[in-house]
Simulated scan of single mutants.
Amino acid sequence: MRYLDFELSEGDDGITTLDAMASTPAARHADVLAEAAAVLAWCRREFPHTEGPVEEGQDWDHELLVSQEDGGWHTVTLTLTGSARFVDAFLAAFGEPLG
């Protein structure tokens, strides 16, 4: 990945969170959105019918936030929550995250 660096944190409830954020000038905003879309496409392809609240037994869920900052900068935040099997597959596909 070029823009999104994921950080991993594990909750006491067995749910793992992968957070990534990228802040770029407007000229790179589409690139970041494309990268986030590629990650979500992988999630949906590899775990096609298990998107939803992990605490309710699903394998993964996400939140994608996009904002525009002063000076024309754009911030994209992608948060994934996942079961152990989802996180293992994610790490195999995308490598070890920070943290």
Rank of each mutant, 00 (worst) to 15 (best):
P48T: 08
G14W: 07
T50W: 00
L8M: 12
F94T: 04
V54T: 07
D59I: 11
D12L: 12
S23W: 00
L40C: 03
L65T: 15
E63H: 13
M21R: 12
D61Y: 09
L80V: 04
R45H: 14
Y3P: 02
A41E: 15
R2E: 15
G11F: 07
V32F: 03
V76Y: 02
H49I: 02
C43I: 10
F90Q: 05
R44W: 11
L65C: 10
G14Y: 05
D5H: 12
E69L: 15
A37V: 05
A38L: 04
S9R: 10
D61F: 08
G57V: 08
G14C: 05
L80Q: 02
F86H: 02
E46S: 14
D70Q: 15
D59E: 09
F47S: 11
L78P: 01
E35P: 02
V66Q: 15
P25V: 11
A26Y: 01
L78N: 02
V32R: 00
S83D: 12
I15W: 01
P97Q: 09
L8F: 01
Q58H: 13
A30N: 13
V39H: 12
V54S: 00
Q58M: 15
T50Y: 05
V66G: 04
L78A: 06
L64G: 05
S23G: 10
L78R: 01
D88M: 02
T50D: 13
M21L: 11
V66N: 10
C43N: 15
T75C: 08
T81P: 04
E63Q: 12
F90I: 03
W42R: 07
A92P: 05
T17Q: 06
D59Y: 05
S67W: 00
L65W: 15
P48E: 06
D88S: 07
F86G: 08
E35M: 00
I15S: 05
D13Y: 02
T16L: 07
D61T: 10
H29F: 12
R28P: 03
R28Q: 15
T24P: 07
V39W: 06
G71K: 00
D13A: 11
I15V: 03
A27S: 11
E7N: 04
R28M: 14
R45M: 10
S23T: 13
T79W: 01
L64C: 10
R2C: 06
E96A: 13
E7M: 07
Y3M: 06
R85S: 12
E10Q: 14
L33K: 04
R45S: 14
S83G: 09
H29Y: 07
G11D: 06
F6V: 03
A27L: 12
D5W: 00
T50P: 09
E69K: 12
S67A: 13
G57D: 10
F86E: 01
F86D: 08
A93I: 03
G14A: 10
S83M: 08
V66Y: 14
